[in-house]
Amino acid sequence: MSSEHRLFSEDPSQRKLSLPWGRTVEMCWRNLKNRRGRFLLVFLSIAVVVAFFVSTLSYHRLLEELRGRDDVHTRAVLERGGVLSHNPEADRKHRDQMVWLLVLSGMLCFVGVMNTMYMSVTERYREIGTLKCLGALDSFVVRLFLLESVFIGAVGSALGALGGFLLTLFQIGVTLEFGLIGVGHVMRTLAQTAPPAFAGGTALTVLAAIYPTIAAARMKPVDAMRVEV
């Protein structure tokens, strides 16, 4: 009997492990579909914060534009609505407050999303352990969970940005006058506020998912399978 390492006698180039992207996307989609309830919560918490952000920002942008107009009708409507600026100092203070609120809500969202992502990873420790028993590399696990968070973040942020913007239009229409805002004006403001909110919301979600995912992927399979949540 030779002491040749039979298990490892194959050509090292044959010893590869892979998880094709197509399969990764499919597995993520499956997970999202089957855990709709839990993910709906994450979607909502992201969407609400992004909506708040977009709404505050776009309201200020739209109002500023209206204040810049010279026609008598617009000024009368703004006056009636109590938003015609008389005092630049008060305006600045108001804006500072808004920025603070935005930062605060962002932090709240971060903690909320982190908690939800953390739970959604920890409740799948056993699954992660099983995947590793079947030959999954740490990077497969990380890829699966990060792709999932990118999807949740992107969809949640997109819905939130759109929802927040529509709410603002509605608010201006009701408190002032629908006729005041033109299409070009609306599109310009949307283009200015939605993309950063979308990118920020998505980044926030992925950032919140990174830590629990890497921690889970690095666990020894036995430890991962022993965890009871």
Binding site: L17, R30, K33, R35, E127, T130, G135
Partner: peptide, 26 residues
């Protein structure tokens, strides 16, 4: 190493558990 160990688990060893451990969404 980590890679070789994963390869060993993938190709050379099959695991069966008391709790089955199938992936529930598949």
């Amino acid at each position: 190493g980590i890679y070789e160990l994963a390869w060993l688990r993938c190709r050379k060893i099959g695991y069966i558990f008391q709790t089955f451990n199938l992936i529930p969404v598949m």
